[in-house]
């Protein structure tokens, strides 16, 4: 098996996550798809760390996880705040700037 297979898997998962962000309407599912993209990027970082024989890639993946955790906390707080005022978690409903 070629080590590049991990990179292919990472690319496929990233693409699926990107499609989910565009296609799904529920804000929480959109958020989960963003998490999937971050995870796919992490997989490629770990694989490149192994290809290069240094641990730098793993440290960067660790930082990505921390930033993703922050992002989830703030993002979900925003979703809850929007839900409290609009009674909906659909991203189509939050279109105040359009009108």
């Amino acid at each position: 098996m070629d080590i590049n297979n991990y990179l292919y898997l990472s690319a496929i998962l990233f693409t699926i996550g990107a499609v989910g962000v565009v296609v799904r309407r529920n804000a929480i599912v959109v958020f989960m798809c963003i998490e999937l993209m971050l995870n796919a990027a992490n997989l490629s970082l770990v694989t490149f760390s192994r290809i290069n024989g240094t641990l730098d890639g793993q440290v960067v993946a660790f930082f990505t996880m921390v930033v993703a955790a922050c992002e989830v906390v703030v993002g979900l707080a925003i979703i809850v705040t929007i839900y409290r005022s609009r009674r909906s978690a659909s991203i189509d409903d939050a279109s105040l700037l359009k009108r």
């Binding site: 529920n26 929480i28 660790f62 978690a89």
Partner: peptide
């Protein structure tokens, strides 16, 4: 290390947070 952290942080904390918010927001037409 990253594998263990992935399980603790992602499948543990982050997914629990997601399910918690899903419980709060509930299911709707979206």
């Amino acid at each position: 290390f990253l594998g263990i952290v992935q399980i603790i942080v992602y499948t543990g904390a982050v997914m629990m947070l997601f399910l918690f918010i899903l419980m709060l927001v509930g299911v709707d037409s979206s």
